[in-house]
Design a protein around this nucleic acid. Structure first.
Length: 216
DNA sequence: CGGCTGATGATCT
DNA sequence: GATCATCAGCCGG
């Protein structure tokens, strides 16, 4: 729509102090998929990795709730989707298209399969490491899209099943930075239940993925 | 910018 | 053997 888009976004991080970051507790995470998908926008993903501290602010998520044909848990529990049935705040990582990992957060109570896909982040810490991991210099290409997020954050199969609320290298942090307007659209790249408007994003943020027509 | 396509391997039928 | 919650590269306008 808007013919003169090109917001310069909130830019790369204000002076957020890593020392002040606090881990999100399970009790703080809403155990309902859509509420969690919205709640996570603006929060931080942190990976204290061999590449140093990698951190980014969540700007785009998708909800895959219970009874959603597009949710990997829809077919019942299997070896691959087991983490979706664990406590909300559990990490679900899967491999797809022979190349990419996808980072998700289990989103409902134990025994109920559902998840939130982390589709895009605004890089905050460790950009030089992310550039090496991604093989590109452009900041905008580091974490725009779920495959890029996992690659920039060195997230792999071994992270599947980890508790993001427990002490560990991969975790979620509270953030009180100002947030833009939260908008929604249909989800990207799926064929089942493709009409459901279950993608949430920070409008105007340049790190949001997807075609322009979905990001108004 | 939008649109198209090949790559690549785990999972499940 | 089909399907895939993707991406990079290429092409045309």
């Amino acid at each position: 729509m808007a013919s003169k888009s090109r917001h310069t976004s909130s830019g790369s991080a204000r002076a957020e102090s890593p020392r002040a970051w606090r881990r999100l507790t399970r009790a703080e995470l809403p155990p309902r998929t859509h509420a969690l998908a919205r709640y996570l926008l603006g929060k931080l993903v942190v990976h204290d990795s061999v590449h140093g501290r990698l951190a980014g602010r969540i700007v785009e998520t998708e909800a895959y709730p219970p009874r959603d044909p597009a949710c990997h848990a829809y077919v019942g529990e299997t070896a691959r989707n087991r983490s979706l049935f664990a406590a909300h705040g559990t990490c679900y990582v899967y491999f797809i298209y022979g190349t990419w990992f996808m980072l998700n957060v289990a989103a409902e109570d134990v025994g109920v399969g559902a998840g939130v896909l982390i589709r895009a982040l605004e890089p905050v810490c460790g950009l030089e490491s992310m550039r090496r991991l991604r093989g590109t210099e452009r900041a905008r290409d580091l974490t725009r899209g779920p495959g890029r997020v996992a690659q920039a954050f060195a997230i792999e199969a071994r992270h599947d099943g980890l508790d993001l609320c427990a002490p560990g290298a991969l975790w979620l942090a509270h953030a009180d930075a100002a947030r833009g307007v939260i908008a929604r659209s249909v989800r990207i790249g799926i064929t089942q239940a493709a009409e459901k408007p279950w993608r949430y994003f920070e409008r105007g943020n340049v790190y949001v993925s997807g075609p322009r027509r979905l990001n108004a």
